[in-house]
Amino acid sequence: MSTQNIIHTDLCIVGAGPVGLFAVFEAGLLKMRCHLVDALPQIGGQLSEIYPHKPIYDIPGYPEIKAQELVDRLMEQIKPFDPGFTLGERVENLEKDENGNFKITTSDHTEIHCKAVVIAGGLGCFEPRKPEIENLERFEGKGVSYMVKDPEVYRDKKIVLAGGGDSALDWTIFLANIAKEVTLVHRGDTFRGAPDSAEKVFQLAEMGKINLILSSHLTKINGNGHLKEVSLLNKAKEESTLETDFLIPLFGLSPKLGPIGEWGLNIDKSAIAVNTEDYSTNVAGIYAIGDINTYPGKLKLILSGFHEAALMCQSAFKYVYPDQKLSFKYTTVYGVNSF
């Protein structure tokens, strides 16, 4: 692992989904170099992560194309412009560097210095969904965590897991052998997750290896600095309290803007407000394209994101090269000239 990775480029594109990828093409035609960052370990965004095998029917020229195939073709299309990629890292911080350029820092401390920033972050990044419990955040890292990073932390401890999906079942089974006491709290009375896992959880409960509390939900948590107890309410509205060292709520992931929401951009309902003339944000030099932006009449279509990428690049060029003249050229006439 390198200690610190420093990259210099014209445009830093946050998000390597279809719209971010196509922005590389449009930028390349204007001789702007691009570097893409994505929190996911692979390119393609939602298309590769969520529905690679699903067909898309509204890409011009393709009556039907599978999502992953569209990503592969976009990669082929932008190959002449040789973009850089930082994958599996989430953008965290944005500031100006000593040359007046933007400096983006990622979760793994990669530094990307760029002249303009293009946010093509789609749904945002997926973060753990939190239950509505007062003081929950106060105990984060002090007994409450939303994922199991190191199971050894829980050895010989009392833990309460909450949730009814696959990860709640899997971690209950796994931690049953490590922790001193495992309690699984589930709002429903059945599990739809993998039938094998659900059966195993019921077996463990019968054998007395775990406590299974169904038809109940978390209402309160308490502690003195560190978590000490959680309160539950069942369907009959009876409250009970459990002593515990740890609480692990496992309620899936939900898409959030994440650190981008702290960059001083105008946000409207979790989307970045832009000017439709060039998809610029309220901060000069920062643009937002694709599903992450919003404007009157916005349609969350890949098609719309492609259009936004083209217009954005015209404006970004003027921002990046204020002294150069921009002449619009058709690829049919001039071709695609690689770097």
Binding site: R129, K130, P131, E132, A162, G163, G164, G165, R187, G188, F191, R192, G193, H217, L218, P249, L250, F251, G252
Partner: peptide
């Protein structure tokens, strides 16, 4: 839809 509902902290039947 069911998979998503399964994960929600405040989902009911």
């Amino acid at each position: 839809e069911l998979d998503m509902l399964d994960t929600l902290p405040n989902a009911a039947s």
